[in-house]
C-alpha cells in the first residue's frame, strides 16, 4: 500500500493527491500538521525526510520526497497510458521536465506569498508577488499560443501531463497570497481544463468546475 505523508492545505501535497486520484491509485494518508504545530520539523518526521518537507511518499521499500519527483515516480510506475510522463518521447519529455522546473519557481513565489500572508512565514511577500506575476505573464503567453495551436496543456502533450498537475495548485491558490489572476485569461481557461480532467478532486481553497460542454 502506498502511504502519503500529507498536509491537506499544502499545494505540494495536493499535487500528489490529484495524480493519485486521476490515476485511481489506492493509498492511505498520514496527516502531518504543517501549521501551526510544524510537525514536519520535528524528530519523528525528520527521520523520514531529513529536509523536513512535505510531501513524502512511501511505496514498499521506496521512500521519496519532493513533489515533482513523486509525480515522476507515480506516472512512470502506475500510468499504463504513458501519457502523463511520456518516457518514450524525448522531446516531449523534455518539455514536461521544463515545466516541472517552472512549477518549482511558482511554488517559491506564489506559494511563498501565500505562506507569508496566510501562515505568517517570515518571507518577503511583495518580492514573492512580483516574481509570481513575472512567471504568470510567461505562462499566460505560452498558454495563449498553445490554445491557438489547439494545445490544451502546458507541455506539448495531447493529454494532460504531470507538468499540468505540478503547476496547478499554487496558481489556483495564488489569491491567498494576494496575487490576482485577472490579467491572465489564458491561465484562467487552463485551470478550468485541469478541473475537468477525470478524477479531479478539489482542496480547501479550490472549487471544482461545472460540467464542460
Amino acid at each position: 500500500m502506498i502511504t502519503l505523508y500529507d498536509y491537506e492545505l499544502s499545494g505540494n501535497c495536493y499535487k500528489i493527491r490529484l495524480l493519485l486520484s486521476m490515476l485511481g491509485i489506492r493509498h492511505e494518508k498520514h496527516a502531518i500538521e504543517f501549521y501551526p504545530a510544524a510537525e514536519h520539523r520535528k524528530e519523528a518526521f525528520l527521520a523520514i525526510n531529513p529536509l523536513g518537507e512535505l510531501p513524502v511518499l512511501q511505496d514498499g521499500e521506496l521512500t521519496l520526497r519532493d513533489s515533482q519527483a513523486i509525480l515522476v515516480y507515480l506516472a512512470s510506475e502506475y500510468d499504463t497510458s504513458g501519457n502523463w510522463y511520456p518516457l518514450q518521447d524525448p522531446r516531449t519529455l523534455a518539455t514536461v521536465t521544463q515545466w516541472l522546473c517552472f512549477a518549482n519557481a511558482i511554488t517559491a513565489s506564489a506559494g511563498g506569498a501565500r505562506l507569508a500572508d496566510g501562515f505568517f512565514h517570515p518571507l518577503d511577500a511583495d518580492a514573492c508577488r512580483s516574481e509570481a506575476h513575472r512567471l504568470f505573464r510567461v505562462l499566460d503567453e505560452h498558454l495563449w499560443f498553445q490554445e491557438r495551436e489547439r494545445q490544451d496543456w502546458v507541455a506539448t502533450t495531447a493529454s494532460p501531463s504531470i507538468a499540468d498537475i505540478a503547476c496547478f495548485p499554487y496558481i489556483m491558490l495564488s489569491e491567498e497570497g494576494g496575487i490576482s489572476r485577472i490579467d491572465y485569461p489564458a491561465i484562467r481557461r487552463w485551470t478550468d481544463r485541469v478541473k475537468r480532467i477525470p478524477g479531479f478532486i478539489p482542496m480547501p481553497g479550490v472549487f471544482p468546475a461545472g460540467p464542460g460542454l
Binding site: 489572476r181 485577472i182 485569461p185 481557461r189 478550468d192 460542454l213
Partner: peptide, 21 residues
C-alpha cells in the same frame, strides 16, 4: 474588454473596465 475567443463555452471571464469588475 475581452477578445471574442476569450469567452470559451462554460467559462467565466474576469474583466475590468475603469476600475469596475
Amino acid at each position: 474588454i475581452a477578445a471574442s475567443s476569450d469567452l470559451v463555452p462554460r467559462h467565466v471571464f474576469h474583466a475590468q473596465i475603469l476600475g469596475r469588475e
